[in-house]
Amino acid sequence: MDRKNPVAVVTGVGPGTGAAIARRFAREGYSVAMLARNRERLAALERDIPNSHAYQCDVTDEAQLDATIDAIGRELGTPKVLVHNAVGGAFGNFMEIDPKVLDQNFQVNTMALLYLARRLAPAMVAAGEGAIIASGNTSALRGKASFAGFAPTKAAQRILAESMARDLGPKGVHVAYVLIDAVIDLEWTRKRFPDAPKEFFITPAAIADEVWHVAHQDRCAWSFNVEIRPFRETW
């Protein structure tokens, strides 16, 4: 491994969006640290994606995060990009959900972003460059009845990211929120919507392309709120 390669940290790496983001950054010459809880799935992706590196980690556990970030620094180098793609979700109205589930989703979606940024942003500020991107969805903007266990945590995540952007932007660190207003093309979503046309879905690779673009925007034209959706999506 060439320690001169820039380092990207991607959380929530599974077979869909997370893997696509890791693959996109690795293809462009990054050493990619892939974080997730599932060791076997990470190991398979590590074998499949050149220049990727698996780190089993629960992003809600600060002790695990500290150990993982220390290992990334020793083995790969100081991260230049963070993509917080890990997500916790649940369906149900406010009477149906278990309050503990809402709290757990808050830990994954919002607190983990805080934990990660507090650990990685100082080095980015010192270097005068870097990018922190959170992957969001429409629940960050509206609270539908059946999303009571999820939407509040994504709204909080977006506001936290905005607060970080206002603080870190003048210091040279780009913070952005990529809001995915679409059904992602995955095996389980295809089964849920078996009659939907191809245009109904957004592909993980297309999401990864936009995340890559946002992470490398010219600093004279930085975005914060970035919304992406299929051309036939009603909004």
Rank of each mutant, 00 (worst) to 15 (best):
R3L: 13
V10F: 08
V10A: 11
G12W: 08
G14S: 15
G18Y: 11
A19T: 01
F25Q: 04
E28A: 14
G29F: 05
Y30V: 01
R39K: 13
R39E: 11
A44T: 09
L45T: 04
L45I: 09
D48L: 15
P50Q: 08
H53F: 15
H53W: 14
A54F: 01
A54W: 04
Y55C: 03
D58K: 04
T60R: 13
E62C: 03
E75S: 12
L76S: 00
G77M: 06
G77V: 06
T78I: 14
V87R: 12
G88E: 04
G89R: 10
N93K: 11
N93T: 15
F94H: 09
M95H: 13
I97A: 02
V101N: 00
N109T: 10
N109Y: 07
N109K: 10
A112I: 05
L114K: 14
L116A: 05
A126G: 00
A126C: 02
A126W: 01
E129W: 03
I133P: 06
A134D: 11
G136W: 00
A140W: 00
A140C: 08
R142W: 07
G143C: 13
K144T: 10
A148M: 07
F150W: 13
F150P: 00
A151D: 10
P152N: 07
A155G: 15
A156N: 05
L168R: 07
P170D: 04
K171W: 03
G172A: 08
V173N: 02
A176F: 07
I180F: 02
V183E: 10
L186N: 06
L186A: 14
F200W: 04
F201P: 02
A205L: 03
A205C: 01
D209M: 02
W212N: 07
V214E: 06
Q217W: 05
D218W: 00
R219I: 05
C220I: 11
A221D: 09
F224N: 06
N225C: 00
V226C: 08
E227Q: 12
R232E: 09
E233Y: 14
T234K: 14
